[in-house]
């Protein structure tokens, strides 16, 4: 009955273990849930509430605050066209118009084949490469109409499968803290002393590594 796959359940446990308080894992776990299902389902929120020891209402509160979490299904490729100033100065509106025409949906819509969701986005931090867009948070720079058409063809044809995972997966390289190297997270209330190097900083063999 659990939402998370066995693999993601153990990933969730690993992530929770990195924080002094479980609740801090909420956003990372919502990402894991979205990576698994492509969007954040109610079942996922209920299970995350259990995992981080809060109510589903609070998970919904956090989840709905953040733009990246989709609470209904979106296309395999979420195409976010930046509309903020630098991109707007470089023709973002025209790019959006073209994209709407090419995909046959308005911004916010999903193509009938479920492949593309087109959206207008705010500044994506690639302002010098305007107009820019992201497909599942992977950049495409200085995109013109032809470039957009080529991108759509490539995505639909699977030519970019290696670079661009389906919606929900952001980073494909994850942090993993080896058990023998980890200091470990401690609840703040369990600590009331300075870390050891602050207490006795001198002469501890520094710099000999």
């Amino acid at each position: 009955m659990s939402f998370f796959s066995e693999e993601n359940r153990s990933l969730a446990r690993e992530i929770i273990g990195r924080y002094p308080k479980r609740r801090s894992a909420m956003i990372p776990l919502l990402h894991v849930a979205q990576a698994q299902a492509g969007w954040v389902t109610e079942e996922a929120m209920v299970e995350i509430a259990e995992l981080v020891d809060t109510t589903p209402a609070e998970v919904l509160g956090t989840c709905s605050f953040y733009e990246m979490f989709k609470r209904e299904p979106v296309g395999k490729y979420l195409v976010n066209i930046c509309a903020t100033m630098s991109c707007a100065l470089a023709g973002a509106a025209e790019l959006m118009e073209h994209a709407e025409e090419r995909l046959g949906v308005r911004a916010g819509g999903t193509t009938p084949d479920g492949l593309f969701t087109l959206a207008s986005a705010e500044c994506q931090a690639a302002c010098t490469e305007a107009p820019c867009l992201q497909v599942n948070y992977r950049y495409r720079y200085r995109v013109d109409a032809d470039g957009f058409d080529q991108l759509v063809d490539d995505l639909a044809g699977g030519a970019l499968d290696d670079e661009i995972p389906p919606h929900g997966v952001t980073a494909r390289v994850r942090q993993h803290i080896p058990a023998d190297r980890a200091v470990g997270a401690v609840p703040p209330e369990a600590v009331n002393e300075p870390p050891v190097w602050m207490a006795a900083p001198a002469g501890n063999g520094a710099g000999s590594a």
Partner: peptide, 15 residues
């Protein structure tokens, strides 16, 4: 570096 200095860096990502 073989010292008493120990610290975890946790990668956290927003949404």
């Amino acid at each position: 570096c073989g010292t008493d200095f120990s610290v975890d860096i946790v990668l956290h990502w927003g949404a």
